[in-house]
Write a protein that binds this DNA or RNA. Structure first.
Lengths: 176, 176
DNA sequence: GAGATATGTCAACAAGGCTGACTTAAAACT
DNA sequence: AGTTTTAAGTCAGCCTTGTTGACATATCTC
């Protein structure tokens, strides 16, 4: 967070407006745009997932496994922030339908390392491209540095404690 | 990753390369940032809603009713894009707990006009301010026109058919 | 060998979506 | 006036995806 914002929160740099200024006027526009944008953003993959008998939960698992081959269960749970029972339900289906494989770790044999199979990878890519298309279309026509501004903004919406973690996860690209 | 690909991802390539290339390289960064940002964005209200025995579904209804007093059931269904049975379940609870009122229309007596009660309005405002605080914190430190860029971008992520509708809804502010 | 850790699993439950069928009241049409 | 359409409400049942709690197993660490 910038010093300026901290100062405003603490005591009000500019005096009379006071420290409520950040919350005084609800930012209805961004709140609602975020809601509608996210809804449409996740809706694209739904149609395709349906063909395979998968839902959004499957998509999230498939996505992160594809992005981080070799991911362990614990790491995946940490990313998704769901219980292992919830994860297990969808993961089991992905494995049974041969979209994901689970293999015993070598250094630590208690761990399982997850990977997408060729068809799993295909699906993951297909869905990512679908979402990318929407993202890029929306980006087209905006200023050149818009992407920088937006990804910066999204990162700063995330809880400060998780930011470094997400940053590492998002900006490292081991994928193909 | 090759420099060329990095350059494409960074620069957003326009012109002769055509539309294909836009979808060629998945925009993993924005896809994932969007996922994490939205998750944290909606998590703030959850804690408070819990105290009232409400969930996110109640929040959405309360929010839009508060924002558009006099909203009808059909209009609300159109905004939320859920079935009337789903809506009815949460709406009934909001009415029973006296956060929302429903009154027969005057010109068309088949319609119901929804409004928040004083405590409903209080809660709606409280939750909006909570989300606004996160939004403004994230905005602080970015360039002055960042908000413009971001709201523009979010709007463009929405299905073109709905954009005008959302725009009308979002940028009209009848609320107090 | 004892205890901690990573994973897997069973059972039950809750929220919040869905479909389909049906009712009621009021408006609109002809 | 009578028929049809529309707005809303309701019943019943199902699905997905989250939850808690308890317990099992294999493996690693000390």
């Amino acid at each position: 967070m910038s010093d300026a914002v901290q100062a405003i929160k603490r005591g009000g740099v500019k005096g009379k407006t006071g420290d409520d200024i950040l919350a005084e006027v609800p930012a209805y526009d961004l709140i609602e745009l975020f809601f509608f944008a996210y809804r449409d953003f996740v809706s694209d993959p739904d149609r395709i997932l349906d063909e395979f008998g998968f839902g959004r939960a499957h998509h999230r698992v498939l996505h992160f496994v594809d992005r981080q081959p070799g991911l362990t269960i614990a790491e995946l749970l940490d990313i998704l922030r769901i219980t292992k029972q919830s994860l297990n339900r969808v993961l089991k289906e992905l494995i049974e339908k041969d979209f994901v494989t689970s293999s015993t770790g070598t250094s630590d044999r208690r761990q399982r390392h997850l990977q997408t199979t060729p068809i799993g990878h295909e699906l993951a890519i297909r869905l990512s491209k679908l979402q990318t298309r929407r993202i890029m279309k929306a980006l087209g026509g905006l200023e050149p540095d818009a992407k920088e501004v937006i990804s910066n903004y999204l990162l700063r919406l995330i809880d400060p404690d998780d930011r470094a973690h997400v940053e590492r996860l998002v900006f490292s690209t081991p994928s193909e």
